[in-house]
Design a protein around this nucleic acid. Structure first.
Length: 589
RNA sequence: ACAUUUAUGGUGUAAUGGAUAGCACAAGAGUCUUCUAAACUCUAAGUUCAGGUUCAAAUCCUGAUAGAUGUACCA
C-alpha cells in the first residue's frame, strides 16, 4: 500500500465523519523543495464539495491526519496547499521493505495474459536504427508489463514473403556466384541485404539504358526485365515451385542467423515467432467469412473492401482482385491466430506511427468481425528515427546499421573508459563485456528516456552522450555503490530504530518510496520513459547525498549502517529499474 | 484537401489542470592528501502566436503558424 492510498482512505473517513460527504479522489503531489514537508494535498478541488476557506479546511485536515495517522508527524498550510511531514519511522521502514524484497516494486499478478509484438523485420535486409528503437521500446514495455502483474508473451511477426524477398533471391542467383555467409564470412542478414541493394542497382541501370533508348521513365519501369523476373519468381513461390522455395528457405535461414546475433547483442529474446507465410491464409478465410456475413463487399473487379466511412475513415481494401492477400489480410489472420494459440486478453503492437491509420482500421475490422477482444488491442506507436539529412532509406544506403551502431557504441565506451583509466588490473574479457554494457546502455537509455511519440533525429557524428542524463551516468552511480558495499563489513547485530535520517537521506527515501507507483503509472501509459526519468531522479538525489555526506566515515556506527543500507537499497532499485529498460548495470566502471 | 501527431532556455528534454516551469548538454565560476570527479556546488538563459474556459493553463477548447506522418490492389 502506498502512502497516498493510505492517506486517501483516511481522508475519506474524515470527510464522512466531519461533513457527511463521500469523496473518492484526492490530489497529492510531492512537496516542492522550497517548502517544509514531504507530501502535499491540494485542497482547492475539495472546495467543490465543501464551501469554505481553503486554508481553514487545510488546517482541519492537517490536524486530523497528524493525530490519527502515525505516518504523519507534522503539517503546515500555505494557501490551499497542505504540506504533510512523514515520520522518520515510516521513511526508515521503506529501507527495510526494499532490502528484504529483491523484487521491490513488483505488482501482484492480475491474472491477465498479454502479448507484446515488437521488432517485426523483413527478411530481405539487416536491422537498422529504426528497429533498435522499436526493439528497445517493445522489449522494455514487455518487461514493465510483466513487472506490473501481467503474464507476458513476447513475439515478432516476420515478414518472410513477398516481392522484396524475391528481389534479393533473384540478384543472388544472377550475381552471387554461390556466395554464402560461410564462404564470405559475412553475417547472413548483411549478405542478403547486399543482394537486395544489388537488385536495385541492376534495376536502375536497366531503366537508364531503356530511357537512353528513347522510352519514357514510366515505360521503362514497366518494361524492365529484371523486375518481371522477380514477379515471376513470386508467382513460382506461391505455386510452391521446389527450387524457388528451397532457395527461399536457405536465404531466410541466413537472415535468421544474422538477426539472432543482433538480438543477442541487444540482449533481447522472443517467446514465439509468427511468420507471415503462416498466417495470411487464415486471414483470407476470415475475409471470405466476413464477406458472407455482409461485413465486407466485393467490387466489380473482384477485390474485397470494407466501408468505414461511418466511423470517419475511408474504404479499405482487404483482398486483391486476383484473390491474393494484402498487409491487412495477414494482420487479421495473425491476430486471430495469436488469441487462439495463447488465449491472451490483451495485445500490444509496437509499430511506428506511420502505421497509425493501419492499426485503427485493423482494430475496427476485428471488432466488426465480432471479436470482443479487439477492444483490448493497443498500438504502441512511436516516432520515426531520422538522420539530420532526412529519412533513412535502405535501398539508397542511407541507413544506420544496427550491428555497426552497436559496435561503435562499444568502441566509444572503451575509449572513454580508457581515458578514465579506472580499470587497471581488470580482466580483459570482463572489460570487453563492460564496454558492451556501457555502450548499449547509453544507446538504449538515449532512446527510452524520451516520450515514444516524439521523433528522434539521430546524428551519427555527434554520437550518444555519456555525461549528464545518460545511461552511463546511472551505471556509474551503481558501480560506485557496489564499491562501497565491497568495503563495508556488515555488523552482526544492529539496533536501527533510533536513527533519524537527515535531509539528503530523507529526500532519497522519499524517492525510493515512489518506485511502486511509478511502475503502475508507466504500465498504464505503456511508457518506459517514466521509469527512465524516475531512475535519473533517484540517481541525481543519490549523487548529491554521496558527494556531500560521507558514508563509510560517518560519525557513528548507527549512521554508517543506515547510510550503507540506504546506498544498497538505492542500487537495488537502480538495478531493477534498469532491468525493466533492458539495460544491465556493472559492478565496476 | 482531409486526418493524425509534434511545438518548452542556444541544443536535447521533464512537468496526474495546481505553488516561483524541473533537468542535462553547450557557456561561465568553484570542488579530488577523505567512500570511483562518467560526479558534485553555484551563475546565466525558456512554454510558437491570438483568443477562450477555470479559483488556477505549458497542460483543456477554438483558430493560426511550422514540421512529421498518413489517406496505395506496398509491407
Amino acid at each position: 500500500m502506498t502512502i497516498q492510498s493510505l492517506l486517501a482512505s483516511q481522508l475519506q473517513t474524515f470527510f464522512t465523519q466531519e461533513f457527511q460527504k463521500d469523496i473518492q479522489s484526492f490530489e497529492f503531489q510531492q512537496t516542492r523543495k522550497e517548502f517544509v514537508g514531504d507530501i502535499t494535498l491540494v485542497v482547492f478541488p475539495l472546495l467543490r464539495h465543501i464551501k469554505t476557506n481553503p486554508a481553514v479546511l487545510a488546517e482541519k485536515i492537517g490536524e486530523y491526519l497528524t493525530s490519527n495517522v502515525k505516518e504523519i508527524e507534522g503539517f503546515n498550510v500555505i494557501k490551499g496547499f497542505l504540506n504533510l511531514e512523514l515520520s522518520s519511522a515510516y521513511l526508515s521502514d521503506v529501507l527495510n521493505k526494499i532490502v528484504e524484497n529483491p523484487e521491490f516494486g513488483k505488482l501482484p499478478s492480475n491474472g491477465k495474459r498479454l502479448m507484446v509484438e515488437f521488432s517485426s523485420p523483413n527478411t530481405n535486409k539487416p536491422l537498422h536504427l529504426g528497429h533498435i528503437r522499436n526493439i528497445t521500446l517493445g522489449y522494455s514495455v514487455s518487461k514493465i508489463m510483466a513487472f506490473a502483474g501481467y503474464e507476458v508473451f513476447k513475439t515478432q511477426i516476420i515478414n518472410d514473403r513477398g516481392i522484396h524477398i524475391c528481389k534479393s533471391m533473384l540478384a543472388w542467383q544472377k550475381f552471387g556466384n554461390g556466395e554464402t555467409p560461410e564462404s564470405s564470412g559475412m553475417k547472413g542478414d548483411h549478405l542478403v541485404g547486399k543482394y537486395y541493394v544489388e537488385f536495385d542497382k541492376a534495376y536502375k541501370k536497366e531503366i537508364k539504358s531503356l530511357v537512353d533508348n528513347g522510352l519514357t521513365e514510366k515505360e521503362a519501369k514497366a518494361k524492365a526485365s529484371i523486375l518481371a523476373q522477380a514477379q515471376q519468381m513470386l508467382k513460382a513461390w506461391e505455386n510452391g515451385d521446389e527450387e524457388v522455395v528451397s532457395l527461399w528457405k536457405t536465404m531466410n535461414s541466413w537472415v535468421y542467423d544474422g538477426f539472432e546475433k543482433t538480438y543477442q547483442t541487444l540482449g533481447v529474446d522472443f517467446d514465439k515467432n509468427y511468420y507471415e507465410s503462416e498466417t495470411y491464409l487464415l486471414g483470407k478465410e476470415n475475409i471470405v467469412d466476413g464477406l458472407e456475413r455482409g461485413i465486407f463487399y466485393k467490387k466489380e473487379d473482384g477485390s474485397v473492401w470494407i466501408d468505414l466511412s461511418d466511423e470517419g475513415l475511408d474504404e479499405k481494401i482487404v483482398l486483391r482482385a486476383d484473390g491474393t492477400a494484402v498487409y491487412m489480410t495477414q494482420d487479421i489472420g495473425t491476430a486471430i491466430k495469436r488469441v487462439d494459440d495463447y488465449n491472451i486478453d490483451n495485445m500490444i503492437y509496437t509499430v511506428g506511427n506511420e502505421q497509425d491509420y493501419h492499426f485503427k482500421v485493423l482494430f475496427l475490422i476485428l471488432k466488426k468481425l465480432g471479436y470482443d477482444w479487439a477492444e483490448n488491442l493497443f498500438h504502441l506507436s512511436y516516432g520515426m528515427v531520422d538522420l539530420p539529412t532526412g529519412k533513412m532509406k535502405s535501398r539508397e544506403g542511407t541507413v544506420v546499421d544496427a550491428d555497426d551502431l552497436m559496435e561503435d557504441m562499444t568502441k566509444t565506451a572503451q575509449q572513454i573508459s580508457e581515458e578514465h583509466g579506472k580499470l587497471d588490473g581488470y580482466d580483459e574479457e570482463l572489460k570487453q563485456k563492460l564496454y558492451k554494457t556501457i555502450g548499449s546502455g547509453a544507446l538504449k537509455y538515449f532512446i527510452l528516456k524520451v516520450d515514444p511519440k516524439k521523433r528522434i533525429v539521430f546524428n551519427p557524428k555527434e554520437s550518444v552522450d555519456f555525461q549528464g542524463n545518460t545511461g552511463p551516468f546511472i551505471q556509474y552511480t551503481y558501480a560506485r555503490i557496489q564499491s562501497i558495499l565491497r568495503q563495508y563489513q556488515w555488523p552482526e547485530h544492529q539496533n536501527e530504530s533510533a536513527y533519524r535520517p537527515e535531509e539528503k537521506e530523507r529526500e532519497l527515501l522519499k524517492i525510493l518510496d515512489q518506485f511502486p507507483s511509478v511502475i503502475e503509472q508507466s504500465a498504464n501509459l505503456y511508457s518506459p520513459a517514466l521509469v527512465a526519468n524516475y531512475t535519473y531522479e533517484l540517481v541525481k538525489s543519490f549523487n548529491s547525498f554521496y558527494q556531500n555526506i560521507s558514508i563509510l566515515s560517518a560519525d557513528t556506527e548507527d549512521q554508517k549502517y543506515f547510510r550503507v543500507k540506504l546506498s544498497m537499497a538505492t542500487s537495488q532499485v537502480i538495478k531493477t529499474a534498469f532491468g525493466l529498460l533492458g539495460i544491465n548495470v556493472p559492478d565496476r566502471m
